[in-house]
Amino acid sequence: MKAQSRTLLEVEGLNIRYPTPRGAVEAVRNVSFTLGREKLGIVGESGSGKTQTGRAILRLTETHARVRADKLHFDGIDLLAANEQTMRRIRGRRISMIMQDPKYSLNPVMSVGEQIAEVFRVHSGAPARKARRRAVEMLDSVRIRDPERVYRAYPHEVSGGMGQRIMIAMMMTPNPDIIIADEPTSALDVTVQLQVLALLDDMVSDNGMGLIFISHDLELVASFCDRVVVMYAGQVVEVVDAGALHQARHPYTRGLLNCLPRIGTHGRDLPVLQRRSSWAAGISPRNRHA
């Protein structure tokens, strides 16, 4: 296990709520964790607030979301207090994010290369030719053959797997400190998933980045990450070391583990995932919405 020499990101008591006409919806409640140059997994079902947590770090939640935290610090910068200009220098340059489906996350009318070169130019102010060279290098580094050709391609001309490599290349270009990967392989074919994961693993390890890997797939996260944060209904229910996952105590985590089918065990019904409102109520019962 890697040494967590220095803490990059500190999240303490993060709350995100959405005011709606029928009262506020608490998307994230009192979430705390820290991240060094390691691979941290956040696991939970859809709606558990894991995506919202990732976006709050970049301060890119929807404009009407109310984000509060006791502490949301990145490398000594208070992310909630920082002005928009500071945030723009952090986004992409120091913290980056990879989204679920390249079909939607890449701009359909810009060439792939242009989109990669853009992020480099914005943060380095480099001339167009240099940015172009860098983009081609990046395409090469995510193991795309013939990067010159892909540079000129448009998103609709590439497959999902290649699209996600392009996305990785784009987000790695300024060599950020932290990458947030939000379900980066969920939209891909199973065969391609492993390739993309291996690539992501190499890129993160080689460059010594911190990775937040958001997924609904506990087994995947456990095999891939160093530590796992399990979220349920907007709260952290448990933080475990990936290696010690099978000794996890919380019934929800155990439930997530047990509901996977195993080949060779016939005749047993899969247990239904248990949900208790008391787990969600644990910390701030007043905020629980009906």
């Binding site: 986004r91 992409g92 489906d101 784009m170």
Partner: peptide, 26 residues
């Protein structure tokens, strides 16, 4: 509303670049 708008913001582009370079081109 498209997701690539989020991508553009994640990249650290200014709001003007997000709107005129990314959204407006579409």
């Amino acid at each position: 509303r498209q997701e690539y708008m989020l991508t553009a913001r994640v990249k650290g582009l200014s709001e003007r670049a997000v709107i005129w370079r990314h959204a407006f081109r579409n």
